[in-house]
């Protein structure tokens, strides 16, 4: 982390995560629902989680296999949550 920069990269990531959490919260507060909204929330979640994996856990610098493994996990979990939501809509 270079001191010459205005803000540390990890601080920027933290800020981004805070903002996105706020967005997710507002979606909930507004009572929005439907496939599009849920897709948005899940993609946000996927993005946030991957930020934690890459920048907080530091897997960006690890072998791509490990990063890919965690991304695959997050993709499957978020994806299947979306599928389950869709199934619930059609019931």
């Amino acid at each position: 982390m270079s001191t010459s920069r205005l803000i540390r990269p990890c601080t920027a990531v933290w800020l981004l995560l805070v903002i996105l959490t706020g967005v997710t919260y507002l979606v909930g507060q507004a009572g929005l629902s439907g496939m599009a909204v849920v897709a948005f929330v899940l993609i946000t979640t996927l993005f946030k989680s991957q930020m934690v994996v890459d920048h907080f856990m530091g897997l960006k610098r690890a072998r791509p296999f490990w990063r890919g493994l965690l991304f695959g996990y997050l993709l499957i979990v978020c994806g299947m949550i979306g599928v389950a939501y869709y199934v619930g809509l059609t019931h």
Partner: peptide, 25 residues
């Protein structure tokens, strides 16, 4: 780093748990 990795995992699962249980409906 070991302790940090575990702690980030605890954070990570909450990041999914929160929208799943509190938000999505």
């Amino acid at each position: 780093e070991t302790g940090a990795s575990y702690w980030h995992m605890v954070d990570l699962v909450w990041l999914i748990l929160f929208p799943l249980v509190y938000v999505i409906h």
